[in-house]
Design a protein around this nucleic acid. Structure first.
Lengths: 191, 191
DNA sequence: GTAAACATGTAACAAGTTACATGATTGT
DNA sequence: ACAATCATGTAACTTGTTACATGTTTAC
């Protein structure tokens, strides 16, 4: 249900073609939502049929540009202020943690260390992105920076948590089973 | 694709019925994965057909218990150690942030404050859960506590971030042109 | 007896992915 | 001329949700 609203949100910045919107999902939105062109193109037509968009002239190479309508803006606003966000997300990485006990401790540690490395790599990707993007003073870019900051914070705690968890397993095991006492994870981050 | 493996992971702890597995998704796993009984029952039959599970005797009220097989355990292990986790998740709350610039600053602040409140409430739910659960010294409970800590840390930074972001908007209102530029003309995108 | 919880299932639909398929324009 | 990129689309399939449908056991 969110795809429609993600598209409305992107089109609120300005008219765009399905191709451009697909790129936006791959680039700026990749971390929070994803959609393939095969889903986007039919969706745009449905949204136009609902009156949320209008299709402009066909450009070169068959390019079709969509423009958000007032109804579309109203629907975006309604979604943002009235519809309660669906907070129960799926997180495969976190799901796996529940089942790490079925592995040998060394394998579980290896898994967590890969997770920590992935989180660190993600922090670096976001940091590079922040430096790369020519942020302007628009509201969209202002919010983009806030969102980037959120992603950065979460990736940082994930890395710290994974390292801490690996250490818990390393120090809290006997020969073959994962049993042991609990320690608090790091609670302070520094930026 | 992860549903099969989530079910394998739960059944690795011991035999269970579809009904019990449904409850496990609602309770302990709700935060990281979800599945309804209408998806679970057919899935269990497919998994049994693949040889990952065997269906035991029918109990009272038509209860059907499934037991994981060695093939099932091998598949769970293969998934954990060999299959690269899908890290690109969907996060509706974070998606919305990208579009907050379309709202009035006061509405955006209200949204973020609701997010902060939700994150705080979630921290409390997890803390209560931690106190409530009769953790034993099993590997599954050891990992359950690690996973809970991860959820707690992430919820805490989300709350902190949302409060910080709300403050950014409140104080940056005049400086950052969040107002007045909401309907800026289409500019070049694509980087 | 009756409500709640236990217990399983199917059908219709919506959302999302992968694979197939085509053609135009730009840069080298 | 060739490759890369732009640009759109459809078909088949998988995954996930909502709604419908049914019967049993336990506790009050």
């Amino acid at each position: 249900m969110s795809l429609k609203h993600a598209l409305l949100g992107l089109l609120a910045e300005g008219p765009a073609s399905g191709y451009e919107l697909t790129k936006r999902f791959e680039l700026s939105l990749a971390n929070v939502w994803s959609a393939k062109h095969s889903q986007i193109y039919p969706e745009l037509r449905k949204m136009a049929a609902e009156g949320w968009l209008v299709a402009g002239e066909e450009g070169s190479r068959g390019r079709k540009e969509y423009v958000i309508t007032d109804d579309g803006r109203a629907e975006l606003r309604r979604w943002l202020v009235e519809v309660r966000p669906e907070r129960a997300g799926r997180n495969e990485s976190m799901l796996r943690v529940f089942f790490l006990w079925t592995l040998d401790p060394a394998e579980a540690v290896a898994y967590l260390e890969r997770e920590a490395a992935a989180a660190h790599a993600y922090v670096e990707r976001l940091t590079a992105l922040d430096a790369l993007v020519a942020w302007d003073e628009s509201g969209a870019d202002f919010m983009g920076r806030l969102a980037l900051e959120e992603g950065l914070l979460i990736a940082q705690v994930q890395a710290e948590w994974a390292e801490w968890a690996a250490e818990q397993i390393r120090s809290g095991r006997d020969a073959t089973t994962l049993t042991g006492r609990r320690r608090r994870p790091p609670t302070k981050r520094q930026r």
